[in-house]
């Protein structure tokens, strides 16, 4: 029982990341009809926004400390953050420690600019081209973006800790009356799950309850008619692309403390997110979210030692296996609508 609760909890945070990325992918596919393989790169750029802000806040100048020596025996040069000069040691440390949540604000304008530049600069030219061309060009773009990140940040993961207050873990088992140390869960993963739920709710509310959202939904259903009504749907779709980029970016920012960001984290999530979109049903937003959590949790169960003992290697293929089963029984995915990608 405790093992099952634990793996469900465990699947939630990964499921949250899948759901957020798949949500963005579905938004872009549903509005622009583009299969965006660079979406994982947006997730990665988000994570590196957190890294960048942490570095900006920690920008330092050297102070020579004569009392200590460095590895060559010369007087030690100590890096003192400028922030420390301005705010004092304690406040500066607190601000730096909160760099990941602060990066949410920092990343939104960056992600909007990146998203708009990507859509207007490149993807726009591929609307009329076959899906294969779109996949090739966005995949190429993803490789370029990840190499750029590697050039500036190196190949190794960069630790980006959560704020001091959230670094520990809590004993979930003890809370529900089990023995201590049976179910331990890190605070930050819970924060991530809550954050994902807020973002998902926000996107749905935006589409459901605003005029802008209504127009976008109408455009998703029948682009031509909306255009004939005199509405500039292209402009709105560009904005939707920027919003999808923001969702992926924010998912990346908050994911940074869970796994130290590295340049290929986007690719790691991208392929699975596509499976999530297909399983959820192409173009279905609730489907993407549901499938994200479902596959995240299943992946957790499949990597339990007890399961691997019975079915060796299941942890590496579970997602694809489930995808095959679902597509065989429900060819349009869990919540797929008729007519999407079927012409």
């Amino acid at each position: 029982m405790d093992a099952i609760i634990l793996q469900i909890l465990n699947g939630l945070d990964k499921g949250s990341a899948y759901a957020l990325i798949a949500l963005g992918l579905t938004l872009i596919f549903g509005t622009l009809g583009v299969v965006n393989f660079a979406h994982g790169a947006l997730f990665m750029i988000g994570a590196f926004c957190a890294v960048t802000l942490q570095r900006l806040l920690s920008l330092s100048h050297e102070v020579v400390d004569e009392t200590r020596t460095d590895f060559l025996g010369n007087p030690l040069k100590v890096e003192v953050p400028y922030l420390q000069d301005w705010l004092g040691a304690e406040t500066a440390a607190a601000v730096i420690s909160w760099s990941v949540p602060l990066a949410i604000l920092f990343s939104i304008p960056i992600m909007i600019v990146v998203g708009v530049a990507m859509e207007r600069g490149l993807i726009k030219h591929f609307y009329k081209r076959p899906h294969a061309d779109q996949i090739l060009v966005t995949f190429g773009l993803a490789i370029v973006l990840q190499e750029v990140i590697k050039y500036y940040f190196g190949a190794n993961p960069i630790p980006t800790p959560a704020p001091e207050a959230f670094t520990g873990s809590f004993d979930f088992g003890a809370l529900i009356g089990m023995d201590p140390y049976t179910i331990i869960y890190p605070y930050w993963r819970l924060v991530y799950f809550a954050f994902a739920m807020i973002i998902i709710a926000g996107v749905f509310a935006f589409l459901q309850f605003t005029t802008f959202g209504m127009v976008v939904r109408a455009g998703m259903a029948d682009r031509e008619t909306v255009g004939l009504l005199g509405i500039n749907i292209d402009k709105r779709f560009t904005i939707m692309f920027a919003i999808a980029a923001c969702v992926a970016g924010l998912a990346g920012v908050m994911y940074a403390p869970i796994n130290a960001p590295n340049y290929h984290m986007g690719m790691d999530f991208l392929v699975l997110s596509f499976v999530v979109v297909v399983v959820g049903g192409m173009g279905s937003l609730p489907g993407a979210v549901a499938a994200g959590f479902l596959l995240g949790i299943l992946e957790s169960f499949a990597s339990m030692a007890a399961v691997i003992d019975i079915l060796p290697g299941i942890n590496q293929i579970i997602i694809y296996l489930v995808a095959i089963i679902i597509l065989l029984t429900r060819p349009r995915g869990l919540m797929g609508r008729k007519g999407v990608m079927e012409e």
């Binding site: 093992a3 634990l6 465990n10 030692a305």
Partner: peptide, 23 residues
């Protein structure tokens, strides 16, 4: 007690780590 193989491409090990305490 146990020895579990993890895929080389794995980045999040939480689902492998979490059951350790219960073992």
């Amino acid at each position: 007690v146990n020895a579990v193989k993890t895929p080389l491409t794995q980045t999040d090990f939480s689902s492998y780590i979490a059951p350790v305490l219960q073992s």
